[in-house]
Design a protein around this nucleic acid. Structure first.
Lengths: 209, 209
DNA sequence: CGGCATCCTCTTTGATACTG
DNA sequence: CAGTATCAAAGAGGATGCCG
């Protein structure tokens, strides 16, 4: 990106990460940890491959991303964040918080990847830390996810679990709407949500405001 | 900006404010309050006038900026932030925090405007709230600024004050470096800082980390 | 002059094809 | 798999023109 040439911290930050796609690449690496080139392409639907290569080069030069050789089992190299890159977490956090109200409009044919749910879900809070743990199986997007409470917080990870307290399946906006408490079950069902299990499990998960 | 078309809060936020210059326009309106078109141009050195007009139109359509007729004395219209626009404060805050280490490299011929100092200065903290207030006069950039402590916090505003506890003048990086405690007085003087007054006044102002 | 709209050039992006 | 090469389209930057 062409520099703004302003002696201001915001402008200088944007000189480095203000390019189109740059912050979304960081999002992928924060959400998924070290990634192969192909993993990044999959998590960034719409990016042109030459742009991904360009941006990775720039981010590497800026000390945000590091290219490392993967340990023996994998025969490729991985991209991962440097500590300086991980420091962008609060930037993504504030942007995501500001953007969360824009998620109410559902999709307009937007692409979706399941692991993107980890961001809003990490903002949920387990209302009763001393109560028994809750597990919820999600089936939306490209891969199944598990939501589980752990010591007062809520986390999401890819994978499946046996005997979850509830299963949510269907379109991403309905699943997300119910999870964050923005949409009630009846409305979500009308939008295509399939729900099984214990409704009380959802009440253990509440938006932290 | 072309949409990323991703059902992710970060991507949707960037759909709205990810355009070049957009967040810097918001910076100006947060730092200076309602602005005339010309004020914005002055605070955004390097922007092409058609781009400023374009961006203002987009930001208005997105509900971030509002164009209002100024009250009688002024014969022009003003641009101001909507509540939704003011909600971008934390985004600029986190970006500025991340970018602050990029300010150590001084200028490379970058443009500078005095009011940009308000951002880093608001992160300073008055170490001893019960101690007498401190006022510092700054003379760097396009207009004089006053830094003053008030009930435990530190604020900056344009203007001059009589009998300040200290006066800092010279290049912006030296003034800023001393203010945030990154540069000691000797080094700042070698970089062109002119200092008058009470050194102890600086010790009342400390980075809040 | 403040507040844009137009025109033109140059750079960046996006889509696709191709290679080690 | 992990990119590079190519080329058309979109966007940015700069100059200038217009209008109250």
């Amino acid at each position: 990106m062409r520099s703004y040439e302003q002696y201001c911290a915001v402008a200088r930050a944007l000189d480095v990460v203000g390019d189109r796609w740059s912050l979304l690449i960081v999002r992928e690496l924060i959400l998924r940890g070290p990634c192969r080139y192909t993993d990044l392409r999959h998590g960034l639907p719409g990016i042109a491959t030459n742009l991904l290569a360009d941006r990775l080069g720039e981010l590497e030069k800026a000390g945000i991303v590091e290219k490392v050789d993967a340990p023996p089992p994998v025969a490729t190299s991985l991209y991962e964040l440097t500590p300086r890159g991980r420091d962008l977490g609060p930037v993504l956090e504030s942007l995501g918080r500001w953007g969360s109200v824009l998620m109410e409009t559902g999709r307009r044919g937007d692409q979706f990847r399941s692991h993107w749910l980890a961001f809003p879900i990490s903002r949920l809070v387990d209302a009763a830390p001393e109560a028994p743990p809750v597990t919820i199986q999600l089936r939306t997007g490209d891969q199944p996810m598990v939501v589980e409470t752990a010591s007062g917080s809520v986390r999401a990870r890819p994978g499946t679990i046996e005997d979850p307290d509830a299963v949510l399946a269907g379109p991403p906006d309905a699943v997300l709407g119910v999870l964050v408490g923005r949409m009630d079950l009846a409305k979500a069902r009308r939008r295509g949500l399939r729900f099984e299990g214990n409704v009380a499990a959802l009440e253990r998960i509440r938006p932290s405001r």
